Amino acid sequence: MSRRWFLSGAVLVTVAAPLLAPSPALAAPPKPDTITIDGEELDEAITVRAKADPELFEAMLSQVNWLSNAKGLSTSPKADKLGRKYTVVVRVGDQAKQTYDLYPLAAGGPRAYRPGKQPDKRRTTNAWFYGRLNMSETLRAAGVPLPGKPESLHGGIGGGERVFDEDTLNPGRDIDKLLTDLREVLLLNGAVVLVITLGLAGISLLVRRRAR
């Protein structure tokens, strides 16, 4: 009897094992591991790989990964205000999955464009977005020849401090200027009070003469 139950249990386990195994369809999709950046002034496309430089790869991915399902702007920017265009393609292995156009030098701040036709055939729409403020710094770190800015960040992507001129951080000079301005204001106010006083005195003298 026990042997029969043992055999029955073994048969049930054998039959149920494929059903209990995780379905390939439910497995997590592979993560992007390569990003390419292309532009008119680039001799060849720049490739950023997750294995070779994970920090830079994540910084570049953060510039575009939020664009896939985001709602775009209601109006499109003017073409002559966009500046240089850089096409960023997100890949998994050799397969392109997403593509976006970045405009780091656009007037009024960086812009990003999502084409409705994506390499992975998913359904989406053409849309414009305001890009991340550190777009220029991230692209420059990847090797894109963008002009530097005085207020650019130092110390790595997303970190560091702003660079100020020494004169900007000179408290003695600022106090002297403040005292000079204050003295000029007091002298001006004193002159105004003196003019008003003389005017009132003249009016009072004139009224007294007429009263006689």
Results as ranks from 00 to 15, higher is better:
residue 210 R to L: 13
residue 151 E to R: 01
residue 201 A to T: 11
residue 72 G to D: 02
residue 3 R to H: 03
residue 130 Y to E: 02
residue 172 G to R: 14
residue 18 P to T: 00
residue 45 A to V: 12
residue 206 L to S: 07
residue 3 R to F: 01
residue 73 L to F: 00
residue 132 R to E: 03
residue 183 R to F: 02
residue 134 N to F: 00
residue 67 L to Q: 09
residue 64 V to A: 10
residue 192 V to I: 07
residue 203 I to V: 15
residue 210 R to W: 01
residue 181 D to C: 07
residue 79 A to K: 00
residue 57 F to I: 03
residue 156 G to Y: 02
residue 212 R to V: 02
residue 176 D to P: 05
residue 13 V to E: 04
residue 148 G to K: 15
residue 183 R to S: 04
residue 167 D to G: 07
residue 115 P to I: 15
residue 72 G to Y: 01
residue 173 R to P: 01
residue 93 G to T: 09
residue 129 F to I: 05
residue 59 A to F: 04
residue 178 L to S: 05
residue 174 D to Q: 11
residue 106 A to V: 08
residue 157 I to N: 00
residue 70 A to E: 15
residue 99 T to Q: 14
residue 30 P to I: 15
residue 78 K to T: 00
residue 197 T to E: 07
residue 186 L to A: 08
residue 2 S to H: 10
residue 32 P to I: 10
residue 64 V to G: 05
residue 196 I to A: 15
residue 68 S to P: 04
residue 162 R to K: 10
residue 194 L to P: 11
residue 50 A to G: 08
residue 166 E to D: 10
residue 43 D to F: 14
residue 38 D to P: 11
residue 147 P to H: 07
residue 10 A to F: 04
residue 96 A to V: 11
residue 49 R to C: 04
residue 84 R to Y: 11
residue 203 I to S: 10
residue 211 A to D: 02
residue 81 K to Y: 00
residue 97 K to D: 11
residue 96 A to R: 12
residue 117 K to R: 11
residue 71 K to V: 07
residue 11 V to G: 02
residue 91 R to I: 02
residue 202 G to D: 13
residue 139 L to I: 06
residue 58 E to F: 14
residue 91 R to M: 15
residue 108 G to S: 03
residue 128 W to A: 02
residue 144 V to T: 05
residue 164 F to P: 01
residue 133 L to Y: 00
residue 185 V to M: 04
residue 63 Q to S: 04
residue 28 A to M: 15
residue 20 L to W: 11
residue 78 K to Q: 06
residue 143 G to Y: 05
residue 195 V to E: 10
residue 83 G to P: 09
residue 88 V to R: 12
residue 97 K to P: 10
residue 2 S to N: 13
residue 42 L to R: 13
residue 179 L to Q: 07
residue 152 S to A: 03
